[in-house]
Computed example of a mutant assay.
Amino acid sequence: MSVRLLHPLIQNGLYKGDSNHAGGILACKCTDRPVKVKVSAGIAHNHACGCTKCWKPDGAAFSVVAVASSESVSVVGNGDKLAVVDPSSLIQRHACKECGTHMYGPVERDHAFKGLCFIHPELFDNGNWPEPGFAAFVSSVIEGGVDPLEMDGIRLKLKEVGLDSYDCLSPALMDYLATWTAKKNGVLH
């Protein structure tokens, strides 16, 4: 049984990236005046994401997405081509109006992820960024049009390439969210 394309960079296994990767320049898919975004620090929580909001390469069921501190992310070229995809969304995904590539998505509202910016590391001008560590929102690929009968095969393939699959975020990130909420509500100090 063949399995749907997870993502071109994870379909056949994970490469070993550099956990000390210091950032680089992200570029959209335009051949004329590509949008360029500088990430001047390392990234964290790189993962395959099955949500319906993240940008994915054509034919892929998952995106590959990570976070960087918002203060380390800046537009350095052709920012006039950017627009926010959904102003009501927690993650303010800035996409190129011409090619549709999501370039960066800061979290600016009061949330545990405030101060973080979501980026797609595959857009870096260098390829040595840290490999994905897990798959999140796996069931959400159904909302994107994947036949539910494919899910066992998809989860098996994710496991084969070395990614634990979750229908939310990884346990460490879920603990972080719960801790933030408990502190905000005065349950923890």
Rank of each mutant, 00 (worst) to 15 (best):
77 G>F: 03
105 G>E: 02
146 V>G: 11
37 V>E: 05
129 W>A: 02
43 I>D: 08
75 V>S: 09
163 L>G: 05
65 V>A: 12
46 N>E: 11
155 R>E: 00
38 K>P: 08
26 L>I: 06
36 K>V: 00
59 G>H: 06
157 K>M: 02
15 Y>D: 13
125 D>T: 00
141 V>Y: 01
77 G>D: 15
33 R>W: 07
49 C>V: 07
47 H>C: 05
25 I>N: 00
68 A>C: 05
96 C>T: 02
29 K>H: 14
113 F>G: 11
67 V>M: 15
104 Y>R: 08
92 Q>Y: 00
187 V>G: 10
142 I>H: 06
27 A>N: 12
54 C>N: 05
139 S>V: 03
73 V>N: 05
56 K>R: 00
189 H>W: 09
138 V>P: 01
125 D>Q: 06
138 V>D: 03
60 A>G: 03
69 S>P: 13
143 E>G: 11
188 L>A: 09
140 S>N: 13
127 G>D: 10
180 W>V: 05
31 T>K: 15
166 Y>V: 06
69 S>Q: 15
138 V>L: 07
51 C>T: 02
107 V>G: 09
51 C>H: 02
31 T>F: 07
14 L>F: 08
119 I>Y: 04
178 A>C: 08
10 I>G: 05
67 V>R: 14
15 Y>P: 10
46 N>M: 09
186 G>S: 01
97 K>N: 12
37 V>H: 06
28 C>E: 10
32 D>T: 12
13 G>R: 09
127 G>P: 08
40 S>V: 07
178 A>P: 12
154 I>V: 01
139 S>E: 13
153 G>Q: 11
108 E>C: 07
117 C>S: 15
26 L>V: 04
161 V>L: 07
43 I>Y: 03
50 G>W: 03
83 A>K: 12
68 A>N: 00
120 H>S: 02
154 I>Q: 08
22 A>W: 09
146 V>A: 12
2 S>A: 15
146 V>N: 12
161 V>T: 07
133 G>L: 12
116 L>E: 03
43 I>M: 09
102 H>A: 04
40 S>W: 04
167 D>A: 01
57 P>Y: 14
166 Y>G: 01
119 I>F: 00
91 I>P: 12
52 T>W: 09
60 A>F: 01
161 V>Y: 01
93 R>T: 06
56 K>A: 00
121 P>Q: 01
22 A>F: 07
64 V>Y: 04
27 A>I: 05
68 A>W: 06
20 N>Q: 14
54 C>A: 08
172 A>D: 13
112 A>C: 10
91 I>A: 09
84 V>W: 13
72 S>K: 11
25 I>P: 06
133 G>E: 13
160 E>F: 01
162 G>N: 01
82 L>F: 04
161 V>M: 07
79 G>I: 14
161 V>R: 09
32 D>R: 12
106 P>H: 11
128 N>P: 01
84 V>M: 10
11 Q>T: 04
160 E>S: 08
173 L>F: 13
141 V>H: 03
41 A>P: 01
39 V>L: 05
65 V>Y: 13
63 S>K: 11
28 C>H: 02
110 D>G: 08
103 M>S: 07
128 N>M: 06
100 G>K: 04
79 G>A: 10
157 K>F: 05
107 V>Q: 10
110 D>K: 10
143 E>A: 08
66 A>T: 03
91 I>Y: 13
152 D>G: 13
161 V>P: 04
31 T>P: 11
5 L>G: 04
127 G>H: 12
37 V>Y: 09
137 F>H: 15
136 A>H: 02
